[in-house]
Nucleic acid binder design. Structure first.
Lengths: 147, 147
DNA sequence: GACGATACTATTAATTTGAAAGTAAGTCAC
DNA sequence: GTGACTTACTTTCAAATTAATAGTATCGTC
């Protein structure tokens, strides 16, 4: 057991949280994956104050999770589309959702299905090498520049 | 494309975020998985103000992610241990970390290895049924009480 | 030219967070 | 048995963030 600091400089989790560590950002990303692209769509879906939404969209855009794209010249209008980094956030969202379903379920929740074969999607995190579910095998943590 | 509200009532992601939707909570959970259990260990590791830490630990405890356990009667001292729900948050943390490593990497980051066979752990989210990586197949979203 | 849609900005109040210091219960060193 | 130290907080107050509401700018339609 150590009580050493796992600082932001070396922790990949802390890195991520610097960029999408608040609930609004994650909810915006969720809605973007659901196909929303416009300011007012996000605003209505989330019930978020416009000031907040402006700031969050700007931050997510600066950070490269979303990109602004003009969809009309007259009037000048822009929409927000997911970048590759934003699209690759989907597995994170699914895992967050899987936990919520298991531990905070109850009541009717949205469900996700494989559109091709119709089975319900149950997201699990596995180690790509061993195929084992994360958390089922002992983990060794190695700090940078350690053997 | 819809712009229907995916409300907190039906979204498993929103559910999760209600309980651990801020960076401090996730970082506390990360440290708890790393073996930290005590107030001062968390405080030193995170550089968090004690007021914040008190509140976050209380919230995580109320929500059933951590539990307080007495480890000394004289003086009376308590430590914070992960519950089952807290332990099952590990896959979420790993996915957050995997994203951060891929998109916000650079520099030396902590790495995780399978303690038994020594291979580096690379977490990926897959559908338990099809085995396909999340995001590689089209998804159909079904609202509650829909066909 | 009034009305509505879209995408915001401005203003201000309420809430949350952060920094610093203090407290309480007990241990340990001499 | 007194003074220093440890652990786990609480108190206080300033600073920053967030929320609520209203307003603005540009254009298109009737």
């Amino acid at each position: 057991m150590n009580d050493e600091n796992i600082s932001k400089d070396v922790c990949p989790i802390a890195r991520s949280l610097t960029f999408a560590g608040d609930a609004w950002s994650l909810l915006i990303l969720r809605d973007a994956h659901a196909g929303l692209t416009r300011f007012d769509q996000f605003r209505k879906s989330l019930g978020i104050a416009p000031t907040m939404l402006t700031r969050r969209l700007a931050t997510l855009t600066e950070e490269g999770l979303l990109e602004k794209q003009r969809y009309s010249e007259h009037p000048p209008r822009e929409e927000y589309l997911l970048t590759a980094a934003g699209r690759d956030f989907l597995p994170v969202l699914f895992m967050i959702g899987a936990w919520g379903r298991q531990y905070r379920g109850g009541g009717n929740l949205v469900r996700f299905f494989d559109a091709e074969n119709g089975t319900e999607i149950k997201a699990v995190a596995v180690d790509e090498v061993t195929g084992a579910k994360i958390g089922t095998r002992p983990i060794r943590t190695v700090m940078p520049n350690e053997s």
